[in-house]
């Protein structure tokens, strides 16, 4: 301890740069929080593999339909249920539509559902959790009772019910595709914010007692700014992990709904819907089932591996 103070006193003007010049060592760029996280993430081999495959899938669904110009909607009965070949790499469906084109289009919808539902559930969860944790007292009690209530709701039956009941009204209001898209996204998002809210509330409760919050209060920072600028960034790690995993969960939920016939209409080929359409032709055209199912599986697997890697990288205390 004394050593450290004397050196600090004897070298009052040393900066890292001047030290580097004196000692002749090459100056390294400073290590940042996110840089450290990225280094830890890169060491997780499965997470890196997951990220690569997922990036490929996202790019393929985004620019694939521009490159691969086969129509996903043109019906041609003379080409009904053709096995995969060089003209139709993933085969054709019962109406002679090209499976690859439909899979690419469906992937767009499935991924969009996953990401949009994640944004809704994470925003809602963060907002409710941070309000409850920061304000405490009665607001906290009420919000946490609400969270408990939502946690006890039977999610899948309720999801099926909501979509069945409100499908037609929204279709009339917003058109067949956008109506059902927003309905599914909102319902999945609204029924999935609870774990994030609990996570954020827990972090807020411990962080708001820390010295840096006290210091910020003392220099006169407003409460809203303390909440969002000072405390929230410190809770980002677990939020990012939860966000990643919830994209996968939302994709699965959407495909379950489509599979039960309560998701997207037949003219919107999401991966779940393609599987639902294909199951009756499974004996004659197994590729109608295998490819959409495989893509759902691959996407969710990649997301789960990435979530695992992110947990190791951002939240080193909670390994598992």
């Amino acid at each position: 301890m004394t050593d450290a103070t004397t050196t600090a006193q004897s070298l009052p003007l040393e900066t890292p740069a001047s030290l580097a010049r004196q000692t002749g060592l090459k100056q390294r760029p400073p290590r940042t929080l996110w840089g450290d996280a990225w280094r830890r993430f890169r060491r997780h081999r499965m997470a890196m593999a997951g990220m690569t495959v997922l990036a490929f899938l996202v790019i393929a669904t985004l620019i694939g339909p521009l490159v691969y110009t086969e129509s996903p909607r043109r019906i041609d009965f003379s080409k009904s249920m053709l096995a995969p070949s060089s003209t139709n790499p993933f085969g054709t469906d019962d109406l002679g539509r090209d499976m690859l084109a439909r899979l690419l289009l469906g992937g767009r919808v499935s991924l969009a559902v996953g990401v949009s539902a994640m944004i809704i559930s994470i925003s809602l969860g963060t907002l409710i959790g941070s309000t409850a944790g920061f304000l405490g007292g009665r607001v906290d009690t009420i919000l946490m009772r609400l969270t408990d209530l939502f946690l006890a709701l039977p999610v899948v039956p309720l999801l099926l019910l909501l979509i069945f009941l409100f499908r037609d009204t929204l279709r009339r209001l917003m058109g067949p595709e956008m109506g059902i898209f927003w309905l599914i996204v909102c319902v999945i998002g609204v029924l999935n914010w609870m774990t994030v809210a609990r996570l954020v509330r827990g972090s807020f409760l411990s962080l708001k007692e820390k010295e840096f919050v006290e210091a910020a209060t003392m220099v006169g920072v407003r409460r809203l700014r303390i909440m969002f600028r000072h405390i929230l960034p410190n809770t980002l790690g677990p939020i990012i992990v939860a966000a990643t995993l919830s994209v996968g969960a939302a994709i699965i939920t959407e495909s379950v709904l489509s599979f039960l016939g309560l998701g997207f209409p037949p003219d919107v080929p999401t991966w779940g819907r393609l599987l639902y359409d294909g199951q009756n032709f499974m004996e004659f055209a197994p590729w109608m089932v295998l490819f959409p199912g495989f893509f759902i599986f691959l996407t969710v697997l990649c997301i789960n591996f990435m979530g695992d890697g992110l947990r190791d990288a951002l939240d080193p205390r909670q390994r598992g």
């Binding site: 495909s255 599979f259 197994p286 089932v289 199912g293 599986f297 789960n304």
Partner: peptide
């Protein structure tokens, strides 16, 4: 374990039917 909880149950079910029944 990762494959297990990433595989949607409906897909596993259909694949099993395809292999063992069909």
């Amino acid at each position: 374990a990762f494959i297990g909880f990433s595989l949607p149950t409906f897909f596993t079910g259909l694949v099993l039917i395809l292999i063992f029944s069909v």
